[in-house]
Amino acid sequence: MDSIKNAANYVSESIQGAASTTSKEANKNVAKDSDAKLTTRAQAAGDAIGDKFDEQAHDRKADVHKEAAKH
């Protein structure tokens, strides 16, 4: 039963990590957009940094659940 729970958690964390990656890339594009306001670009850059931390956290958690599901 624990391996099923860990597998489900792995899938969940993988999806959340992918969503953070998508958000990070979108924010990076806004931050690079020279037509956007400076405040918008700065906010997007900050959000991209936060998304990167979220992405890494979800990826680490997914790896832990993946390994736990194997045992």
Rank of each mutant, 00 (worst) to 15 (best):
E55F: 07
K52S: 14
K5G: 04
R60P: 00
A26P: 00
Q43N: 14
I15L: 11
G50H: 07
I15Y: 14
K28A: 14
S23F: 08
G46D: 15
Q56T: 10
V11E: 07
F53A: 13
Y10I: 00
E13H: 07
H71S: 05
R60S: 10
H71A: 03
S23H: 10
K66D: 00
A19W: 04
G50C: 05
A57V: 05
A62Y: 04
S12E: 13
A69M: 08
A18Q: 13
A44N: 12
T39F: 13
A44S: 11
N27G: 08
A26Q: 07
R60Y: 04
G17A: 15
A31N: 05
E25C: 06
K52Y: 12
A62P: 04
H65R: 04
N9M: 07
M1H: 06
I15F: 11
V64A: 12
D59R: 11
A42K: 09
N6H: 12
A42V: 06
H65L: 01
D59I: 00
R41K: 15
N29L: 14
D63L: 02
K37R: 10
K28H: 09
K37D: 08
T40C: 14
S23Q: 09
A42D: 14
K66Q: 05
K61M: 09
F53I: 08
D59L: 06
L38Q: 13
I49F: 11
H71P: 04
G50T: 01
D33Y: 06
A45M: 08
H58Q: 13
V11M: 01
A45C: 03
R41E: 03
T21G: 09
D63Y: 02
N29G: 06
D59E: 08
L38D: 14
D35I: 01
E25M: 10
H65S: 06
Y10L: 03
E55Y: 01
D54Y: 03
K52D: 15
A36Y: 05
A8N: 07
A69N: 06
K24C: 05
I15P: 04
K61Y: 05
S12H: 09
V30R: 08
K70Y: 03
F53R: 11
K37N: 05
A31V: 01
V11I: 04
K61V: 03
E13V: 01
K32M: 06
A18S: 15
S12D: 05
A42W: 02
T40A: 15
E25N: 15
N9E: 03
A48F: 10
